[in-house]
Simulated assay, not measured.
Amino acid sequence: MYFACTGIVVKSDEGSASILTSASLVRSDDDDSNMASILMIQVRLPNGEDTIGLVAHYDLDYNAAVIIIPSCPDLQAAFFYHHMEFGSNSNVVAVGRWFYSGKFMATTGILTDEPPVEYSELMTTSTCKIPMVRT
């Protein structure tokens, strides 16, 4: 394994699942502005089993990627059932999980006034610093 990151299931239907994660997972070693040419995405499921995922979409500028698991056990998608407003300078937390042990990692920060222009209605940025650990 070269790189690991946490994701969240955003869609689950008919035996497949879509996972939103960091585009750092697919970024090229040689050129941060390109996707790696040869990838094998190993996904650790909640039951501890591993499966192979496929890159469906990615945006290296906004550091987001969607990984599809073509056949998987029933995974529950995150349910964003109502809109919540967070103002600038709100305290937030970023949470991740270690790949092998499943232990949680977390860091805190605040929301900033600098949302990405293209996705300003969908995304915001924070000062949370997530450490990059390469194996």
Rank of each mutant, 00 (worst) to 15 (best):
F3E: 12
A4S: 15
G7E: 07
I8M: 07
V10K: 00
K11Q: 11
K11N: 06
S12I: 00
S12Y: 04
E14L: 09
E14D: 11
G15E: 08
S16P: 03
S16N: 15
S18K: 11
L20A: 05
T21I: 02
S22T: 09
S22L: 01
A23L: 05
S24A: 08
S24G: 13
L25D: 05
V26W: 06
R27K: 14
D29A: 10
D30I: 08
D32C: 02
S33L: 11
M35P: 03
M35W: 04
I38H: 04
M40P: 01
Q42M: 10
R44H: 13
P46Y: 08
N47W: 05
G48K: 07
G48I: 09
D50P: 01
T51A: 15
T51Y: 07
I52P: 03
G53W: 06
G53V: 04
L54F: 07
V55N: 06
V55E: 07
V55C: 11
A56M: 09
A56N: 08
A56S: 09
Y58W: 09
L60W: 04
D61K: 09
Y62R: 13
N63C: 04
N63Y: 01
A65R: 00
A65V: 01
A65H: 01
I67H: 10
I68V: 15
I68D: 12
I69D: 01
I69H: 00
P70L: 06
C72M: 00
C72G: 01
D74G: 08
L75K: 10
A78G: 08
F79E: 12
Y81N: 14
Y81I: 05
H83C: 10
H83T: 09
E85F: 06
G87E: 11
G87I: 03
S88F: 11
N89K: 11
S90L: 04
S90G: 10
V92Q: 01
A94N: 03
A94K: 02
A94Y: 02
A94W: 02
V95M: 05
V95K: 07
R97V: 06
R97I: 06
W98Y: 09
F99M: 06
F99P: 01
S101D: 13
G102A: 03
F104P: 03
F104T: 14
A106Y: 09
T107A: 01
T107W: 00
T107Q: 00
I110R: 13
T112K: 06
T112A: 06
E114K: 13
E114Y: 08
P115F: 04
P115S: 10
V117Y: 12
V117G: 09
E118C: 10
Y119F: 15
Y119T: 11
Y119L: 15
S120T: 06
E121R: 14
M123F: 15
M123H: 05
T124D: 14
T124Y: 13
S126I: 04
T127N: 04
C128M: 00
K129G: 02
M132E: 14
V133D: 07
V133K: 08
R134S: 09
T135G: 05
